[in-house]
Design a protein around this nucleic acid. Structure first.
Lengths: 215, 215
DNA sequence: CGCTGAGTTGAAATAGCTCAACTCCTGTGG
DNA sequence: CCACAGGAGTTGAGCTATTTCAACTCAGCG
């Protein structure tokens, strides 16, 4: 299931920019684990502790309700670190969304409490709370606009956006159905704001108008 | 605007139980600042750093959109600590929802990085992400059930729940309108699950049925 | 005792959901 | 290299939960 890798598709242009702090390279092991798309990294209830640094690819972190409804609480892209938990056991599931290269780190003890870990944890909290505003208080188009601009920024502010996840993932991240995602992307396309190069690649034609949609 | 206090209404029965870790008493100053209801504690953009420990009362932490839509990202009750930020400046607003007693602490430097602060920050992140599931993926009744059970637990699992906030606050916390909050509370009352003793006090008549609603 | 803000209830409007049909990739095997 | 199968995405039509707008009640307070 694992293999050591040095190349893959879906590589992000700009590691280090993104959400959670990137860490000094020497503290991460050399070895990169290559995981296929849709591979489980950890599951709710498992013992927590291990942190992960994404070399390339993307990861969804999510939670489930009993009846299968799913909320993706975060996507993590190349250059980002994830796996922080408050407890000894995982509160969430983590899976790759595309072929992904990971470095793993056993932080020994959280109480060692490196400042960078603290910073990353705090950033994770703020990101989650900002996401709450989007999910709770914005309309479908607004949600998509925020999502796309966030992705664009994390990929180095190209007007070409790579979507390393399905419409289903996006829907479960933004709290809406796959059909609503699709319809509203089409709407943004019809308005001349986006061009849908392929289902996994979007070109932003009018960034200002997209930005205006975020409020 | 401030005064030193030793008593107030809306005191929570069970400090220390709640969301963010309570800290060793000696690290907090003796002095309690008394704030009236709806008093600003800090605003978005202000310099961050200060942490707050709630002696009694309640606080809402929220974010605004340009057009005034509001998302309450967290309520904090007696015994809880709040004020963590990832940045040098505040990402959120914090206000009292009722008359509240606070102790303030300048943590000098976050990089000192006490393990308890790390733990509290991580719990904050997990709470926010769990809240995301509720806001993004649950129906109005389900949201209210989760909200009430959470409040009950934090108040010591009485079947009497004190609501130290308005319907507006609740709606902005759960991502719904004040009318939907009201209608669904009435519905739970009509179903015999709740008794609305007053607009700020709810008695849970059938906890199991309420729990079942959460999925 | 009446005023005011909070909460409740009703009716109509609507954004997003559900169900269903259809298209379009993509990748696999002949 | 092509054909075809299956999954992912799109589009349509009708439905429904929630919102919006409005009227009304109630509790607390000067």
């Amino acid at each position: 299931m694992y293999a050591t890798a040095q190349s893959s598709t879906h590589r992000s242009a700009n590691p280090g920019l993104a959400g959670l702090a990137s860490r000094p390279a020497q503290s991460w092991p050399r070895r990169i684990e290559l995981l296929a798309a849709d591979t489980e990294i950890y599951a709710q209830g498992e013992r927590s502790g291990t942190l992960y640094h994404i070399e390339f690819g993307a990861v969804r972190v999510y939670r489930l309700l009993a009846d299968g409804r799913r909320q993706v609480v975060a996507f993590h892209l190349a250059g980002e670190t994830f796996g922080f938990e408050a407890d000894r056991s995982r509160s969430f599931f983590a899976e790759t969304t595309v072929e992904t290269g990971l470095r793993m780190m056993e932080p020994g003890d959280y109480d060692q409490c490196a400042p960078e870990l603290m910073a990353a944890a705090l950033r994770g909290m703020v990101r989650a709370q900002e996401h709450l505003l989007v999910v709770g208080r914005q309309s479908a188009v607004e949600k998509l606009a925020v999502f796309l601009l966030d992705l664009a920024k994390r990929q180095g502010d190209n007007d070409q956006i790579d979507l390393p996840m399905t419409r289903n993932d996006i829907g479960d991240y933004l709290g809406m159905t796959i059909e609503t995602v699709s319809r509203n992307l089409s709407r943004l396309r019809d308005d001349g704001i986006l061009r849908l190069r392929s289902s996994r690649c979007i070109e932003v034609l009018q960034p200002e108008r997209l930005r205006k949609l975020c409020q």
